[in-house]
Design a protein around this nucleic acid. Structure first.
Length: 444
RNA sequence: GUGACCAUAGCUCAAUUGGCAGAGCAUCUGGUUGUGGCCCAGAAGGUUGCGGGUUCGAGUCCCGCUGGUCACCCCA
């Protein structure tokens, strides 16, 4: 066992494929149904993009990035590069760089792919994990916020989650946010020496973060804290109310969570999270919000935006915890077995014809006994076996065996085309009785 | 980054007060000529995570490292 996985990374095994295929295809189909287009940006960017876009003081930038110095020309030191710790900054860079401001606004873009954060791994937390990300760039209309919320809600609902409730709040804008922060600080200051040590620290550096503290000593003082919604200016207040009214209009439940503030610097106005079960301390299934100043910060024209990201692994883990089963994957329905070298040649042609006709087929490998081949046919869940032996070669026919019914018939090779045509229906029909075919499934 | 617990075959786990590393499942091959599931037999599979130490002798005791799990921090 010389080589092993890098800490915090994972091998996604075939057993997990039904979940991954289901979640990723659902996500993509849904994004397209909502009118989003896919954008795929590089997995690494200039370090400065993330430092600026995510915020120097965030945990992500200050201690969780995979950063290295690239090689420059003639042995000189190259630029500092970083594996993306989130999608948004890279998507914004692409928006600016590709002149998306000259396309019809707003632009609705989604991405799916790996994200890297150098954290200590635990349940539901990996150093390389996958996100589905969606952004609406170029509109400050509250209906854009609503679209993002509706997209996430629809996603989880269609995946089979029940009782979904958004945690939602507004963090105001650069005009009203500071007023609230001052008020919050003023309220907390008298209790400063009674707060948990970490929160005393936060009170100085980032008072907003005291709000979502989980420290026992701090909690009693938070209930009386001022609410940011009471400090919003007219614009932010109106925006927030509108978003909520749209949610109500389509009966999407939400809770205003006055203590919800998100860790990334760029959020303005709407912020939200959705919590899942079975994730231990990593309850957040997704998070998102509005980031009206971000594009300008990154060198573009002032452009509003709103978006969200969700973790694929966390979705799958939560599904498993709640017993939500993904649909079975389609797999080959026909197994071609043979008895000698001459028959093998016919089998090769046969399996090729089947596949060209759109029928999923497997061919036996190696000089194994027919018994071993049939066992393989059974284990791989095929519904039919085609067997070619000496007699079949002589009579130019094949044996077609129905593995479910344990019936078989000799079919002239000439008629096989008809059989194949009938089998094409089999291709599109999901497998009926699932045979337990792997150790992993039986072990469960 | 901090703390707690854990590490034996592909998987799930055994192994008396330190005394020859085992089972079930999975894998492969058979159970007479060319047929799957059930059953039976056999085979293969381990430097007990890695490296030190104590001891006549270490899977077992001690130390370090690596990895895993859970929690803190923060987040997906």
């Amino acid at each position: 066992m010389k080589y092993q996985r890098i800490k915090g990374t994972q091998d996604i095994l075939p057993e997990a494929e039904p979940y991954w295929a289901h979640v990723t295809s659902t996500v993509q189909a849904l994004a397209r149904r909502f009118g989003f287009e896919q954008i795929s940006t590089p997995m690494f960017e200039n370090t400065a993009l993330f430092a600026r876009g995510v915020g120097e003081d965030t945990d992500i930038v200050s201690k969780e990035m995979y950063t290295w110095l690239d090689r420059g020309k003639d042995g000189e030191q190259g630029e500092s590069l970083t594996l993306r710790p989130e999608f948004t900054a890279g998507v914004m860079r692409a928006y600016i760089e590709n002149g998306f401001a000259s396309r019809p606004q707003p632009q609705k873009l989604y991405s799916v792919g790996p994200i890297f954060r150098r954290e200590k791994p635990q349940k539901g937390r990996y150093r390389q994990f996958h996100q589905f990300n969606a952004e609406i760039i170029g509109s400050d209309d509250p209906v854009a916020d609503f679209e993002i919320l509706l997209l996430t809600h629809t996603l989880y609902r269609e995946l089979g989650f029940k009782n979904l409730v958004f945690q939602i709040n507004s963090t105001g804008d650069p005009e009203c946010k500071p007023r609230y922060v001052a008020a919050l600080k003023q309220y907390l200051l008298p209790y400063a020496d009674k707060l948990a040590p970490t929160d005393r620290d936060r009170l100085e550096r980032n008072p907003l973060r005291v709000l979502d503290s989980k420290e026992r000593e701090t909690l009693p003082y938070l209930s009386g804290a001022p609410h940011i919604v009471d400090y919003l200016n007219d614009d932010c207040k109106k925006h927030f109310d509108e978003v909520l009214s749209y949610l109500s209009a389509v009966d999407i439940p939400y809770q205003i969570n006055h203590r919800l503030v998100r860790g990334l610097d760029y959020y303005t106005k709407t912020v939200f999270e959705l919590w899942g079960e079975g994730l231990g301390a990593q309850a957040a299934l997704c998070g998102g919000g509005r980031y009206d100043g971000l594009i300008e910060l990154l060198g573009g024209a002032p452009t509003p935006g709103v978006g969200f990201a969700t973790g694929i692994e966390r979705i799958i883990m939560s599904m498993q915890d709640q017993g939500i089963e993904p649909p079975a994957l389609a797999r080959p329905q026909v197994f071609v077995a043979y008895l000698n070298e001459a028959a093998k040649l016919v089998a090769v042609k046969l399996v090729t014809d089947l596949r060209n006709a759109g029928v999923g087929a497997r061919i036996a490998f190696g000089g194994r006994s027919l018994k071993a081949q049939m066992k393989d046919a059974d284990r791989t869940g095929c519904r039919f076996a085609l067997i070619i032996g000496e007699d079949e070669l002589k009579t130019n026919s094949v044996i077609l065996r129905d593995l479910g019914k344990s019936e078989q018939a000799s079919v002239p090779m000439a008629d096989l085309q008809t059989w194949v045509t009938n089998l094409i229906d089999v291709r599109t029909t999901p497998p009926q009785e699932e045979q337990p075919e792997s150790a992993a499934e039986e072990a469960k």
